[in-house]
Simulated assay, not measured.
Amino acid sequence: MKKLIMSLMFMVLICIALPAMAQNSIESNKGSADQKPGGVKSLEKRIKQLEEAIDRNVESDKWYDRIQVSGLVEVEAGYSKFEDNNDPTADTDESDVDLATVELVVDAKIIKHVDGHVMFKYEQDDLFVDEGFITLVGTEAFPAYLIAGRQYIPFGYYDSHFVTDPNTLVLGETNQGAAVAGYRFGGGMVDLAVGAFNGEVDKAGEDNAIDSFVAAVTIQPLYFLMAGMSYTSNLSSSDSLSAAIEDIGVTELNDLVGGWSAFVTVEFLDRFKVIVEYVAAVDDFEAGELYDTTDTQKRKPTAWNIELGVMIIEDLELALRYGGSDDGADFLPESQYGAVVNWGFFKNTSLALEYLHDEFEETSLAVDQEADTFTAQLAVEF
């Protein structure tokens, strides 16, 4: 049944897209690619915003001329149906409408090669500093950079057309105080980055110190093709994974568990975009370190995400997702599929309508669950 639904969705997508494919030129697609509505903010989008702030030419010495303020407001309405096939009494139906996210970003141009960046964020009834760092950049002849402070380390890519985060982001996204140094060459086609940080999860018997590192390479040989790989020595310190470990009362691991990631994105026929990403642990978590302290098996979680998006007409996008995981228990769905429509009906204003179906299954932990979620998101950027 699942395969049939996915096949029908794909056929509908193609039938809608084919009559319009000849209407846009490659150049017009290049110009509008960054203005498509909807989507999770990927690492690439964060880097582009930072580059724009750094590249600003400011003639004035007045402090207020050196400040750039931007932001995001997201309001979401949702309905979810959860079914536990092992315990029907745990089945739930929930719906809500609320302020989901507020971001306020302040970029300060200090001098030509120095920029200060702060992002304040409101999410899940908490107000906090999500990012705060100083960036030092080199010259055209020596395109090196250093980012020091609280930041999203360059592990994973996490691009998405959807409102809901992909499994890859849930498994790997890491926000930490870190120092990341990088170098770009080939006119920006290749980016190499390395960094160090003190992870949220420590190795048993070790001091609380800077003991984790990250390395990444990203290439963009053509404007429509981007690919990359990254490695972190401490995947267990990702935001979601470290919280899951803490929730079961584990404070230290026998060994830190590293992770690796690979992605590729391709845009073609003027309006299609394919996103493929894979994130995986390099080693096993020992029994009882992840999901449940009574678990008798080692765990090696992996996650993947595949999306196909098409711009039906200007500012109207339809996308499909198929994702999943291994060793995800009830933390990551074993399979996930769905569709989203993103409509940019005013400038910097978009409406997204999303449906996702998740299936969680892990026999040894008696996990057999399903969830259907419908989400409507109204977002404004400024």
Rank of each mutant, 00 (worst) to 15 (best):
D126H: 07
G323V: 08
F10P: 00
F224H: 09
S261H: 14
E51H: 11
I111T: 15
K41T: 13
V250R: 08
K300W: 00
F133H: 07
E334M: 03
D191F: 08
T265R: 11
G328A: 07
A148V: 12
C15E: 04
V201N: 02
T373L: 12
T363G: 02
L127S: 06
G309F: 08
D130E: 13
F360N: 05
A100R: 06
K298F: 06
K203I: 03
K112T: 14
C15Q: 10
T92E: 15
T302K: 12
V194K: 05
R150S: 05
G323W: 11
L353I: 14
M11C: 13
N57V: 15
T296F: 10
T302V: 12
Q124G: 09
E200G: 02
S230Y: 08
R46K: 10
F374K: 03
V12Q: 06
Q23E: 11
A376M: 14
D159I: 07
L192Y: 05
K203A: 07
Y322M: 08
F272E: 02
W343E: 05
E359A: 12
V106K: 00
G186H: 11
K347L: 03
C15A: 14
F285Y: 15
D270F: 13
D315Y: 06
N85M: 10
Y79P: 01
D87C: 07
A244D: 06
I5T: 11
I275W: 05
V279C: 08
V163N: 02
L225I: 15
V97T: 15
T294C: 01
K41M: 09
E246R: 06
S325A: 15
V264I: 13
P301T: 11
A100E: 04
R46Q: 10
L378D: 03
V114N: 11
F224P: 00
R271P: 02
I210Q: 04
K41Q: 10
G344Y: 08
Q336G: 02
A204C: 06
Q23T: 07
I110V: 15
Q377C: 03
T251Q: 10
G188S: 11
Q35L: 11
A181W: 05
V310G: 02
K203T: 12
D295N: 09
L332P: 05
V217N: 01
Q377G: 00
A244I: 01
S70D: 09
V97C: 09
L222F: 13
P333V: 09
K41N: 08
S237T: 10
N305A: 12
D295Q: 03
A108Q: 06
V180Q: 04
T218G: 01
E246N: 12
S350G: 09
T375H: 00
K81W: 00
Y291R: 01
N305R: 03
A196L: 08
W63Q: 01
A204G: 05
R150Y: 00
I153E: 02
D372T: 10
A371F: 01
T349R: 02
S230R: 09
N167C: 09
E359N: 14
F185G: 07
D330T: 06
I16A: 15
I110S: 05
G187M: 13
V266L: 14
G182C: 11
G309M: 05
K121N: 02
F382K: 00
D87G: 07
E76N: 10
G156H: 08
K30A: 10
V129K: 02
D255L: 01
M9G: 14
E123I: 02
G31T: 13
H117S: 10
E246D: 14
N348R: 13
V58T: 15
Q49M: 08
T101F: 03
G328R: 04
